[in-house]
Amino acid sequence: MVNPHGAPGAIELVEAVREWIERDVMATSEGRLRFHARVATNMLAMVEREIELGESHAVAHAERLATLGVADDHEFAAAIRAGDLDDRLDEVRTLLRATVDDKLAVANPGYVDD
């Protein structure tokens, strides 16, 4: 895949905004605004990680769902609720553990060590 957009790419653009908030907005704000700026930088860092890891996570998740014979998370959730996967719950847990690890790797990689 050749990206026609040139530099800076999506990650660099988001990174640049995040660095500006950290450098200029957070340094000169306090209270509620500073807190909301911190939330915003966390969200932008999350987007950077999702751009980087999202594609490989999607491939891995699709493989996990295929193993269980379900098309998507809607089918997966419905199958668990209906009891259709009751004889494969060990497998379901192992696969879900991997999915939750991927979600944390994007949303908040520091959480596991907290």
Partner: peptide, 26 residues
């Protein structure tokens, strides 16, 4: 609210906590 939007991505923290709380109890 971007703050509320961000909370949506905290669900995986709860999912992780659920694995911790249920370790050895499944």
């Amino acid at each position: 609210s971007h703050e509320l939007a961000a909370i949506g991505r905290r669900v995986c923290e709860n999912e992780h906590d659920l694995f911790l709380a249920l370790e050895g109890r499944w």
